[in-house]
């Protein structure tokens, strides 16, 4: 007999906590199909009213950057401080941006 998990794929779960915010990755779970992945996500990740919208994506559909490429991908940004918007004063009337 198959073990229960043999045909239960892994899904990545994204939750939007309120209108206007974007979906954020919250974790992963097992489910045999997308419908049940949504239901499982509801039970595992929104029990304490964390969300108003759920996305699930099969983990195998995610392409990740390689840890070996960390240096060429990310270190060039380290010495380019001018990319941060910190070189001008924000008028106080604007408040928080």
């Amino acid at each position: 007999m198959d073990k229960p998990n043999d045909n239960w794929k892994i899904w990545e779960v994204f939750i939007r906590s309120k209108n206007g915010l974007s979906h954020k990755h919250v974790g992963s779970l097992h489910a045999p199909d997308a419908d049940m992945a949504i239901k499982n996500a509801r039970d595992v990740y929104t029990r304490r009213s964390e969300g108003i919208s759920i996305w699930v994506v099969p983990s195998e559909a995610v392409t990740a950057s390689s840890p070996d490429e960390k240096e060429p991908l990310f270190t060039p940004a380290d010495d380019k401080v001018y990319r941060h918007p910190t070189f001008y004063e924000i008028p106080s009337e604007i408040g928080h941006m």
Binding site: P4, N5, W8, H30, A31, K39, N40, D43, V44, R47
Partner: peptide, 12 residues
């Protein structure tokens, strides 16, 4: 439960 996710679902 047979899997963690369904264990939580039934407990809910």
């Amino acid at each position: 439960g047979p899997v963690l996710e369904q264990d939580i679902a039934l407990t809910n």
